[in-house]
């Protein structure tokens, strides 16, 4: 029986591929939210990582202080954090809508620092433990590898959420309105559609996606203030590689880059933390608008 591939045990290879896919599904969820927000608000939401962190902390706080279990957190946390996003949009982002995009970048970056600072102040930087829900705490032996059930769940849940988001945008009426507003908000408004409200909902939804990812991440990554910032740097590279233009592009690029990162860990571990940035540089040289992006 084939037990290794050019000297690499299948067991290790499959394990790394799974890890890569899991990382990739987080890249996909976060870059999807960034792309949706950027498409309508023309703001690069630097708070996105902090909102993911918020999702993880909210799940931990809910469990520790209010006895909210994991499954309820998956539903409630995106709602709560999404509403905080709505407040941020209504109170702050709305005021900088008509001025240079640089201000959006500064504002969201500043907010991210404030949020991270608050979590560090109240919870410390060392990281909190969030238990894997009992239903998913075991695993299965697939013969060639051991599959922890929680990781399989993360993969399935994130792909379902990404595809559902894609379907809503591409196949529904509200999605068509969103696409039209990305193209020409003034005309959409002149048809009687409340574009400012659409913008608020869009931002809230993008933030809710980040928070959902945060809850999914809480049991496998350590819940700590820096978790979102670390991830966001890679996600920005993913967005540059995929291009801002396409929703499906964000999803595929996220998963694909996670896989490539996983493979690199097996075949050339020294490069695993930079491989995505190397790909980003190559893509920028060959196709600056990104693999799935549209040239402006």
């Amino acid at each position: 029986m084939l037990t290794d591939l050019i000297g690499i045990p299948i067991q290790a290879l499959a394990g790394q591929l799974l890890l890569g896919l899991i990382n990739g599904s987080f890249y996909a969820m976060l870059s999807l939210g960034l792309a949706i927000i950027f498409g309508l608000l023309h703001i690069i939401n630097f708070t996105h990582g902090a909102q993911y962190t918020m999702g993880a902390f909210a799940a931990w706080i809910g469990m520790t202080y209010f006895g909210v279990n994991y499954w309820w957190a998956l539903i409630l946390v995106p709602l709560v954090v999404g509403l905080i996003g709505v407040a941020i949009e209504r109170l702050m982002l709305v005021r900088i809508r008509d001025i240079a995009p640089l201000y959006g970048l500064l504002l969201t970056f500043g907010l991210a620092l404030v949020i991270q600072g608050l979590f560090r102040h109240y919870f410390g930087a060392s990281g909190l433990r969030y238990p894997i829900p009992p239903l998913l705490s075991s695993g299965s032996n697939l013969g060639f590898m051991f599959l922890p059930h929680y990781r399989a769940w993360v993969l399935v849940a994130s792909i379902v959420v990404c595809l559902a988001t894609w379907l809503v945008i591409e196949r529904t009426r509200i999605g068509a309105t969103l696409r039209a507003a990305q193209e020409n908000p003034g005309l959409v408004e002149a048809f009687g559609i409340h574009v400012p409200r659409l913008i608020t909902i869009t931002y809230g939804t993008g933030v809710a996606l980040a928070a959902f990812a945060g809850v999914l991440a809480a049991p496998i990554y350590s819940v700590q203030p820096q978790m979102g910032a670390d991830l966001l740097i890679v996600v920005f590279a993913v967005v540059v590689i995929g291009g801002m233009g396409s929703i499906l592009g964000s999803i595929l690029t996220g998963l694909g880059l996670g896989l490539i990162e996983g493979l690199t860990k097996v075949f050339y571990p020294e490069a695993s933390s930079v491989i995505i940035f190397v790909i980003m540089i190559l893509v920028l040289m060959v196709k600056p608008e990104g693999l799935f992006g549209r040239a402006h």
């Binding site: 068509a176 696409r179 039209a180 990305q182 193209e183 020409n184 003034g186 005309l187 408004e189 002149a190 048809f191 009687g192 559609i193 409340h194 574009v195």
Partner: peptide, 24 residues
């Protein structure tokens, strides 16, 4: 009034260049 309220009064607008959306 903002444009959306004016449109809701029953005014239909066809802009110059027609305003057909490419992504729809």
């Amino acid at each position: 009034l903002p444009a959306r309220r004016i449109a809701r009064l029953g005014i239909g607008y066809v802009p110059e260049e027609r305003g057909i959306f490419a992504s729809l």
